[in-house]
């Protein structure tokens, strides 16, 4: 099967609507297809990755720990748009630290998150063949 460049663009915050959760479900299933996958978090999408999500009191499942498992699924190109993060008063320290293990370098642990400017992310987006928007 051909390998295509897939990007998932996540622009919605979690819990208020179901898009973030159901997008993550697509990413997990999609990982089995061994495509060239990138995730982009833009706008309110950056809220999906905050640390310390605690959802018992709203009666929903906390799915944020799943992001930490993405590295195990070879999903390790996670782009965060810098402008979106900054205009929300956040920095990378407020987000989960996502890593993956590079099998080609003796399983060295590497950062999955790439903090990029809007114009840098625009270049990455332009290279994609299939863009799934949530």
């Amino acid at each position: 099967m051909a390998i295509k460049k897939f990007m998932y663009t996540n622009r919605k915050a979690p819990y208020g609507t179901v898009y973030a959760l159901e997008s993550l479900e697509v990413v997990l299933i999609g990982a089995a297809f061994d495509q060239d996958v990138s995730l982009a978090f833009i706008g309110d999408g950056v809220y999906q990755l905050t640390k310390g999500q605690t959802t018992e009191a709203i009666g929903q499942k906390n799915f944020s720990p799943v992001y930490a498992a993405l590295g195990d699924y070879d999903v390790n190109k996670i782009y965060i748009e810098k402008e979106s993060l900054e205009e929300r008063g956040l920095s990378l320290d407020d987000l989960q630290h996502l890593v993956w293990e590079d099998e080609d370098e003796d399983w060295a642990e590497k950062d999955s998150i790439r903090l990029v400017s809007r114009s840098e992310l625009a270049d990455v987006m332009t290279e994609q063949e299939i863009i799934l928007s949530f």
């Binding site: 897939f6 479900e25 697509v26 999609g30 297809f33 495509q35 799934l132």
Partner: peptide, 17 residues
């Protein structure tokens, strides 16, 4: 299943949401 969506992306020239 959701795999059908990924497959659609792989098999099609364009996918629009």
């Amino acid at each position: 299943g959701l795999g059908q969506l990924i497959e659609a992306g792989i098999e099609s020239d364009r996918l629009i949401v």
